[in-house]
């Protein structure tokens, strides 16, 4: 145990995800040894991020205003919505530069064992967005795990009566890997989603 404010700092850092007591202690002593200007800048950013950042009222992504950068960009394709679980998934897809439509962040996936059902996600908001008829394709980009697949199944069934084109991101072999190490589920899906080589 350290005295007063040093221990408080270690305790607060230790509450962050993935940071155990040892890491918290190491970060605390790094901050104590760091230049005072750097620490003040970090503190200011922490306060600023809580004051300024909120969730986009349209898509649920992180935003500094009412709408996020993507929803307020008029050059984006309004006919396509890509549904993701978390804001960090938006960043991952944006890095590909393949998608020019807009997003909808659900805020998680359906997980009954954790007590998370459709009503705990931003499903109602998605249905409201789809109701205006402007969207023609819904891309389901939830995680390729069990909860993500079940969430995609639920959304596809919900949206089906609206007559939209509903697509799911392909699953298969990772680029740069060896085939022999692929598991049966992934390899099976890669076979299901094989494409014609037109050379």
């Amino acid at each position: 145990m350290y005295e007063g404010v040093v221990q408080d700092l270690i305790d607060e850092l230790g509450r962050l995800p993935g940071i155990g007591p040892k890491s918290a202690q190491r970060i605390a002593f790094h901050l104590l040894a760091a230049d005072s200007t750097d620490v003040r800048r970090l503190a200011a950013v922490l306060v600023e991020v809580k004051d300024k950042v909120r969730f986009c009222r349209t898509c649920g992504n992180v935003a500094e205003g009412e709408q996020c950068r993507i929803c307020s960009d008029t050059r984006r394709d309004l006919s396509k919505i890509c549904v993701v679980e978390e804001p960090k998934d938006v960043v991952a897809i944006e890095k590909t530069r393949e998608f020019r439509g807009r997003y909808h962040v659900l805020g998680g996936a359906i997980s009954p064992i954790e007590g998370i059902g459709p009503d705990d996600l931003r499903v109602r908001e998605l249905m409201t967005r789809l109701a205006d008829g402007e969207v023609t394709e819904l891309i389901l980009a939830t995680d390729p795990n069990l909860e993500g697949e079940a969430t995609a199944t639920y959304l596809a069934r919900l949206v089906k009566p609206m007559g939209l084109r509903v697509t799911r991101l392909a699953s298969g072999l990772p680029v740069g890997g060896d085939l022999e190490y692929a598991d049966e589920v992934t390899l099976g899906r890669a076979f299901e989603g094989r494409r014609l080589l037109d050379v």
Binding site: I110, S111, P112, I113, L146, E149, A150, T153, Y154, R157, D183, E184, V185
Partner: peptide, 25 residues
């Protein structure tokens, strides 16, 4: 090593998924 992977068959049907999750819990 997989003996039986029921994930796709269960997650592909929402009714089965919710029933199966209650079985696991």
């Amino acid at each position: 090593e997989t003996i039986a992977s029921h994930g796709d068959a269960i997650a592909g049907d929402y009714g089965r998924y919710t029933a199966g999750t209650a079985m696991l819990e």
